[in-house]
Amino acid sequence: MSPPTSDGPPRPLGVGDVVVCPNDLLGEWVAAQITNIDPDWKKVGVLELDWSGPEPSTTDDFDAVEPLRLTHHSWNGRLSHANCDWVLPRSYRVLGRLPLVHDQRSNSYTSRWRVGDQLARQRAWDRGEHDWQETGALELTPAELEQVLADGAPSQNAVRTLNTTGLSEVDGGRLTAIFPNLTSLTLGGSLGQFANAGKLNRLSSLKGLFISDLFGMTKADCLLPAEVPDLEYLDLNSVPHEYALAMRARWRSEVVNGTSVNILKARKPEWVQENLENPLRDWDGRGHITAARFKKAVEQFKKTRRELLAMVGPQPDESTLARLMDLGREYALAFNRLDGRSPFIETEEREELFAALNTVMTERELELGRSLVAERSALLSGVEGARDW
């Protein structure tokens, strides 16, 4: 085992180290080898080994040490090898060190360590179970989650992983009552409200918590290490400022024990109020978008929105279609200029720019009580004909 260093992983790791952990899908222990350490990006290369069994005491407990090659689905014999966050999760331990079984670096990157999951999929594939799916995992729409959390609904004790995005509201009390045995919880909103978030402390088996774009939480809702001692991933993005600071203060000392803490975009109440009707709000704080560009982008969107709402009236009008096409062209040209010599509008941003216009059109349709198919088409045609992004 490597000695601790000031510029190395929080839990000591060295190249050649073999790490082991229990895997729920297999019901056995699994193993991986550390192939490289990148202090600049705070990543380590993790090569899965083709082994599972009872908890090992030393590396001598392995009959052979071979890398895991994947043939399921379209992997075509590639190694299960990726660069992961360099915080060794608390359920993992270093067993010892062996010569590298593969000395090439991986070009694949991921934040989470999930050693054993690919081995479980490969074993199922080898058994002929080509439609095998992970048990205990649910991905629900907001409407489906609301139905599951309704009063009188039965508990779902077998569910271990829950993922829901697009939430406008969710209640932590109901959620933890229905899903008491969660090990991974992902909740995403759209400036949604998260009530009773402190009830997440009931989830004593929780290993991963991922929350984005939800609000209403305060420092009193802070997750406590004593209540969720197995937590390995804490990922908060665009959450209340007060809650973010409290969570960071509570959990940063747990990094050396194996909890990866990633807290970004702590939002103050003023920001939430200002961005209620701003579909480009996620650009604020995005790595490759400067604050100045974000401000100009929002100003341009608001200008286009005002003109669009004023332009589209209760009755269809041919002249309106021509003006909407011009408006779309102006929108595209404005963002061409903003993109400039150092482009920042990539695939995600392009989709968001179109989605922003569609949001305004939908808003106007609801106000007028009629379909705006022709108007929408004219607007977007104007954009398509002039955009460089």
Rank of each mutant, 00 (worst) to 15 (best):
A220L: 09
E346C: 04
R286K: 10
V272S: 04
D7S: 11
E129R: 00
L98S: 02
R160T: 15
G166N: 08
A226H: 12
D103H: 15
T290D: 05
R174K: 10
R174V: 10
R112F: 14
V87N: 08
S253Y: 04
L145S: 03
P180E: 13
G53A: 04
W75N: 06
N278D: 08
T165Y: 11
D339G: 02
S106E: 00
A32L: 05
P3C: 07
K302S: 07
L236Q: 02
T304R: 03
A386Q: 09
F215P: 03
K43W: 01
T110R: 15
D388Q: 10
D171A: 03
R252Y: 09
E330C: 00
V46R: 03
T35R: 12
A332Y: 02
F344I: 06
E134F: 00
P279S: 01
K302Y: 15
Q118F: 12
S155Y: 08
A31I: 11
P4N: 10
S74L: 14
A332K: 07
E307H: 05
P269T: 01
E384V: 02
R121S: 14
L276I: 11
R376Q: 14
R69C: 02
P343D: 04
S204L: 08
L379K: 02
L175K: 03
K199Q: 13
G328L: 12
D85W: 09
E169F: 13
V46E: 11
E352P: 01
V87C: 11
W132F: 09
N23K: 10
R127E: 13
L368G: 07
R350T: 01
T320H: 01
V360T: 15
D17W: 11
L245V: 09
K295L: 10
E346A: 12
L49G: 01
L333K: 06
R341M: 05
G216N: 06
P67H: 03
K42L: 12
A82H: 07
H102I: 04
P316A: 10
V312I: 15
G328H: 04
Q156W: 09
A378D: 04
F179H: 06
T347W: 13
R127M: 13
L140G: 04
A124S: 11
V255E: 14
P22W: 08
R105D: 03
V15N: 00
G285W: 09
G369H: 09
S155T: 13
A124Q: 15
E318L: 06
S80L: 05
E232Y: 06
V312P: 05
A322M: 01
Q133P: 05
S52A: 12
P240C: 04
Y243S: 06
T141E: 08
E274T: 02
L223Q: 05
A386H: 09
M1K: 05
S371M: 12
A266P: 10
E55Y: 02
R305G: 00
H241D: 14
D85L: 12
V312G: 04
I34M: 00
L372P: 02
Q147S: 09
A322N: 00
M311D: 00
R250N: 07
P54D: 14
L88Q: 04
Y92A: 01
Q147W: 14
